[in-house]
Design a protein around this nucleic acid. Structure first.
Length: 430
RNA sequence: GUCCCGUUCGUCUAGCCUGGUCCAGGACACAGGAUUUUCAUUCCUGCAACAUGGGUUCGAAUCCCAUACGGGACGCCA
C-alpha cells in the first residue's frame, strides 16, 4: 500500500518548489490509489511564525491538492504536527539508547554513524551509495529533536512507503537510512525529484525570488489548474507532445521512474501562456463566475455579464481584468495624449465625425449593422476600416487594445458611444 | 575542500534503458508571412540543441571512460 507524505515546515512561505513536491506526492498517491499524508514539521519553535500553517493549507487547497491524512482531516497516525509528537520521539530515542547508538555532548544528543556507505534506493536516480562521516545531532541541547530525527521517526511511525522530496535531500538520505536501520525499520523507497532553479542566474529557487510564492499567483488570480498543469511539466512529461491536459489524465500516466533527473528552470512566460490557454478554453459560465468574483464595481449583473463575455477571447490573465474593463464602468476614463498623437496618421477628427454621422442614423446599434456601417464608410471615404476602428476605439476607451471592436460598441450602447466621441473631440479641440 | 547528483534548441522537454527509422521531434519565447474587425486570436514559415575529448562498434544523442561545466549536501535550519 502506497503511503506518501508532504512535510513542509511552517516558515510563513510556500513556494513553487514546495508546491511541485506536494503535487508529485499527490499525483503518485492518486495514481496508485494510495494515501497522501500532510505533516507539519514545526520542531524549531524559535522559528515558528503564526499563521504560517494556514498559508500552506490555503495554497494546497487552492491548487486542488487534497490530503487524506493530516491537520484538519485527522487519520490513524496522528498527531500530524511534530510539535505534538514529543512522547513518540522519546520512545524512539529509547530504542537508540538501548543499542548504544547515541551519546550526549554539551547537552545535545548525537547519533553515532557507521562510516559505511549506505544504499539509498532511489526510484529516479537508481541506487546511490553514500557514507556519513560525522556524527550528527538528533536532540538539541534545549531538548527539542532535529529534522533528521523527526523526519525519519515520523516516516517510520506513519508507515510511509515512498519518500518523494527535492533532490537537495539526496545527500541527507544516508543519514536517514542509517537512522532507519538503527531503529530497526526498513527504509522506504526514495524518489528525489529535480530542483526548480531560478529563472535567471544561478541556484535553486528561493523564497525571496519574485514569483516564487504560490500565494502570489493566487493573489494575481491565476487559474490554479494552469499553475498545476505547468508544474506537472517541470520534471515530468506524458512522453508524447501533449502539454495542456486535464489532471485526471496526468494522474493516470504519472509514475516515479518517468521523472527527469535534471533540474528545471521556472519560466513565467510559459506559465502565462498556459494561464491564457485555460482562460480561453474554459466554459463561458466558469469565466463569468471567476470574473465576477473579482469585481468590485457595482453595476447591473446582466451588464457585467455582457462586458465579461466579450472579454474572454482577449484576456490572458485575470490580473489585468480590472484594468481591461475599467472604461465600461467609468465615464471619466483617461485619454492619454500620447495615444491620441499616434492616431494622427488616420486623420482622427474627420473619421470620428463621419462615424458620428453614420452611427446617429443607425436604428439598431448591433454588431452586424456596425460592421456594415464601417465597411460602407471606408468605401465611401476611401480609407481603411482600421482607420475608423482605431480612432473610435480610442475615443470610447482611451486605449489601443480591448475586446472585439464590433462587440464592445453595442455593450457600451449607442448613447454612450456617441457622447464619448463628442467628448473626445472636445478634449482635443485644437 | 570532501562527498553526491546531473549535462539535448534561450527555456520546458521527446528520443537514451532495448545503438541504425534523428543531418534530432514538440511546446514557450523570438522573427517573418497569411487570414481577420484594429490590438488580439487562428494558421503557415523560419531561427535554434545532442558540453568537450577519447574509446567500443560497420554504425552512438543513445554504451564505457576522462575532462569541463552546472546543481546539491556537508548546521544544536528544514
Amino acid at each position: 500500500m502506497v503511503r506518501v507524505r508532504f512535510a513542509p515546515s511552517p516558515t510563513g512561505f510556500f513556494h513553487i518548489g514546495g508546491a511541485r513536491t506536494a503535487l508529485f506526492n499527490w499525483l503518485y498517491a492518486r495514481h496508485t490509489g494510495g494515501t497522501f499524508v500532510l505533516r507539519i514539521e514545526d520542531t524549531d519553535r524559535e522559528r515558528h511564525i503564526p499563521g504560517a500553517t494556514e498559508v500552506i493549507f490555503d495554497s494546497l487547497r487552492w491548487l486542488g491538492l487534497d490530503w487524506d491524512e493530516g491537520p484538519e482531516v485527522g487519520g490513524d497516525y496522528g498527531p500530524y504536527f511534530q510539535s505534538q509528537r514529543d512522547t513518540i520521539y522519546q520512545e524512539y530515542l529509547e530504542i537508540l539508547r538501548k543499542s548504544d547508538k547515541v551519546y550526549e555532548q554539551e547537552g545535545a544528543i548525537f547519533f553515532r554513524v557507521s562510516h559505511e556507505p549506505q544504499l539509498i534506493d532511489d526510484l529516479i536516480h537508481g541506487p546511490v551509495y553514500r557514507a556519513e562521516e560525522k556524527d550528527f545531532v538528533i536532540f538539541r541541547s534545549n531538548g527539542t529533536p532535529t529534522f533528521h530525527f523527526v523526519n525519519v521517526v515520523d516516516d517510520a511511525a506513519m508507515q510511509i512507503s515512498h519518500v518523494i522530496r527535492g533532490a537537495d535531500h539526496l545527500s541527507n538520505s544516508s543519514k536517514h537510512v542509517e537512522l532507519f536501520k538503527a531503529l530497526g525499520v526498513p527504509p522506504p523507497k526514495f524518489a528525489h525529484i529535480p530542483l526548480i532553479l531560478k529563472t535567471n542566474g544561478a541556484g535553486k529557487m528561493s523564497k525571496r525570488e519574485t514569483g516564487a510564492l504560490v500565494e502570489d499567483y493566487h493573489k494575481q488570480h491565476f487559474i490554479p489548474e494552469a499553475l498545476r498543469n505547468y508544474l506537472c511539466l517541470l520534471g515530468w512529461s506524458p512522453k508524447d507532445d501533449r502539454e495542456i491536459m486535464p489532471i485526471e489524465e496526468v494522474v493516470r500516466l504519472f509514475d516515479l521512474p518517468e521523472i527527469n533527473k535534471t533540474n528545471a528552470r521556472f519560466d513565467e512566460r510559459k506559465l502565462a501562456y498556459m494561464n491564457a490557454e485555460y482562460i480561453k478554453n474554459m466554459p463561458l459560465e466558469e469565466f463569468l463566475r471567476r470574473g465576477k468574483e473579482l469585481f468590485d464595481v457595482r453595476a447591473d449583473e446582466a451588464y457585467i455579464d455582457q462586458v465579461l463575455t466579450i472579454c474572454q477571447e482577449k484576456l490572458r490573465s485575470f490580473t489585468e481584468l480590472g484594468h481591461f474593463v475599467e472604461y465600461f464602468f467609468d465615464e471619466n476614463f483617461e485619454r492619454p495624449q500620447s495615444e491620441w498623437e499616434k492616431l494622427a496618421k488616420f486623420n482622427p477628427r474627420p473619421r470620428l465625425e463621419e462615424f458620428l454621422g453614420a452611427a446617429d442614423a443607425l436604428t439598431a446599434f448591433n454588431e452586424t449593422n456596425l460592421e456594415q456601417m464601417i465597411h460602407d464608410l471606408s468605401e465611401q471615404h476611401g480609407v481603411k476600416t482600421g482607420d475608423y476602428i482605431h480612432t473610435v476605439r480610442y475615443a470610447v476607451s482611451g486605449r489601443g487594445v480591448g475586446p472585439s471592436f464590433y462587440r464592445m460598441l453595442p455593450v457600451l450602447g449607442k448613447e454612450r458611444v456617441l457622447s464619448r466621441i463628442h467628448r473626445t473631440l472636445e478634449i482635443f479641440q485644437s
